[in-house]
C-alpha cells in the first residue's frame, strides 16, 4: 500500500476513564487521521465508556519482531523488587504490635487523612 491509497492503517487506543491508562483496541483503515479519529469510537467502543482516544499511524509504531520478542523473557528471581520479597515484615511488625503497611492498606489512604 503506497501513500496514495485510501486504505491507510491506524492503530486505535482509548482510555475508559480519566485516570485509566490508554489501551490498545484494534486497527482500522482510513484515508487520513481526521477520518480515522471519527471512526475510532464507533468501531471499537460502542458499548463501553471512553474518556479519550488516540489514533496512531501504524508506520509510526516500532514493535518487536518475532526474534526480538525474546527480550521480554526474564528469570523469576526478582523478589527484591516486589513486596513478595518483604512479606516477612508482617511477622516482624506483629512483634512490635503493629500492622503491616501492605499495598491494600497504603492504597486505602487514597480516601484522605482525618481532617
Amino acid at each position: 500500500m503506497g501513500n496514495e491509497s485510501f486504505y491507510q492503517e491506524f492503530e486505535v487506543f482509548s482510555r475508559r476513564t480519566k485516570t485509566s491508562p490508554f489501551q490498545h483496541q484494534f486497527s482500522l483503515l482510513a484515508p487520513n487521521e481526521d477520518i480515522a479519529i471519527v471512526m475510532a469510537q464507533e468501531n471499537f467502543m460502542r458499548r463501553e465508556p471512553v474518556a479519550d482516544i488516540w489514533v496512531v499511524k501504524r508506520d509510526n509504531i516500532r514493535g518487536l519482531n518475532q526474534e526480538e520478542r525474546q527480550m521480554v523473557e526474564r528469570l523469576d528471581n526478582k523478589d527484591y523488587r516486589l513486596t513478595k520479597g518483604y512479606g516477612y515484615l508482617r511477622k516482624k511488625w506483629r512483634q512490635y504490635e503493629q500492622g503491616m503497611f501492605d499495598e491494600k492498606e497504603i492504597l486505602s489512604w487514597a480516601g484522605g487523612q482525618k481532617k
Partner: peptide, 11 residues
C-alpha cells in the same frame, strides 16, 4: 463507501 464508515454512520 467504507466499512469503518458504515459502522460509524449507523451509530
Amino acid at each position: 463507501p467504507h466499512i469503518e464508515e458504515d459502522v460509524a454512520f449507523s451509530s
